[in-house]
Nucleic acid binder design. Structure first.
Lengths: 242, 242
DNA sequence: GGGACGTTTCGGCGGGCGCCGAAGTGTCCC
DNA sequence: GGGACACTTCGGCGCCCGCCGAAACGTCCC
């Protein structure tokens, strides 16, 4: 029997495998995890982040762009890449959530700490996730700012609340203003979409939250605790972390 | 520089890549797509389905079980495997939804037809998805059988409605009785969880829907159209497909 | 123009891994 | 017991592909 015949593994096969193969490499996976912060990175930044030569990074980025997981944007001698969309971010998140690191009974103490920090509060693409993200969403529903009956649509009161905080939501965006996004720790929808992104950006700008090191985990600052208590009635102990 | 140092690709790397690598092979992907019907398959069935030797299938199944994507159950000389849970099914679905086959502007006419059939109605793990699945869920919300305010919880009227149809939902199950599941065609939650599974099973048993060939696509039968119109008020033309 | 720098292309190397067939183990049933 | 059958283990083959460094290309800025 001809060998070529049996080697359909890498060649034809279901298209599903082609997408998975893009994320099956440690370096490309590291790129996507880094890009999960929603920002655009240059090729060199990603190369240094993952610890590979620039030429290697170029090849990986080509593959990811060709596979429609990333979009690129050239500016002068720089090449910026970002995740191609929320679906890609969700895919990366759900892959990570099935990894051994996030399975019950974690191995090491440091891994456990990392896991808990991420479960508490983190960015998911461009909005807040984790226990804090879910708590914020629940509080907004409880105060009538979001309408759970219409896919977490923004109510009139919600729009006023945002305006009151000085949070503007770009109206021209194609994305639905709010969109539920399942959380891997809570398995419950939380606030994504344009509103979620705007809220998250404001929380960073106003110093409510800060990034923990260079990870996706975030910490709620004392000012953030105060603000979230005043504006949403969230209890201080929930936001204290741990 | 030592070569071992730079070869962290396959070895260490982010755990995300390890999960993706399990689905990055055409044969393993074919296994998971087949298992997406929610049933348990034997190793030999899967081997024949994917066109590989039994020994090859064994190795793949070991990898998938070790990676917690599949669970196994030995019965006599048979080894049954099934997807490890709804999260895995969702992962496989979202990988497939990002594959070129499901991207806008499909290539061939046959691929287009397949795509449309799947978009219309299909099984997703153990419940209904596609336009029909979403329509059923919407109708149930509209009739007060599901409560969108509590994560698509079953209302009292909903429980009575199910009982009236003779649909029993196993109470001992750990899974939440209803659970939203995002649809790749509609990008909207539809009815999953124990209730979704029971409803889907009943629809098959009562002859409301039938499988199209050996794919995951399903067709609504004339009897099914009648039943869905009577019990949920769904219009006949929506269910006619195409 | 010329140097600095971000990015790309290309060759070459080497390990990982998916494939098979043959032989071995366990289960079922006559 | 003995044969059929589902599954597993093992050895070997060969391709895929990720890695690098060197050199080329573009852009920017002095």
């Amino acid at each position: 029997m001809d060998r070529m015949d049996t080697r359909r593994t890498r060649g034809a096969g279901p298209d599903l495998a082609a997408v998975a193969r893009l994320l099956a490499d440690g370096t490309r996976a590291a790129f996507c995890l880094a890009l999960l912060d929603g920002r655009a990175w240059t090729a060199t930044e990603l190369a240094r982040h993952a610890g590979v030569a620039p030429s290697t990074a170029t090849e990986h980025l080509h593959a990811l762009v060709r596979g429609h997981l990333l979009t690129e944007e050239r500016q002068g001698r720089h090449r910026y890449v970002r995740l191609a969309g929320p679906q890609v971010a969700e895919l990366v998140e759900s892959l990570a959530s099935l990894a051994p690191e996030h399975r019950p009974a974690p191995r090491s103490l440091s891994a456990d700490g990392r896991r808990r920090a991420l479960a508490h509060a983190r960015t998911c693409y461009d909005h807040l996730a984790g226990a804090v993200g879910v708590a914020v969403t629940d509080a907004m529903i409880g105060r009538g700012l979001l309408d759970p009956a219409h896919g977490l649509g923004l109510t009139g009161a919600g729009a006023a609340w945002l305006a009151d905080l000085g949070i503007g939501v770009p109206p021209g965006t194609r994305r639905p203003s709010v969109r539920p996004c399942l959380d891997w720790t809570e398995r419950r929808p939380h606030l994504a979409g344009a509103v979620g992104a705007a809220l998250c950006r404001h929380a960073f700008d106003a110093g409510w939250i800060t990034r923990v090191g260079s990870t996706r985990a975030v910490a709620v600052t004392p000012a953030g605790r105060q603000a979230l208590h005043r504006h949403l009635g969230l209890p201080g102990d929930l936001l204290a972390g741990r």
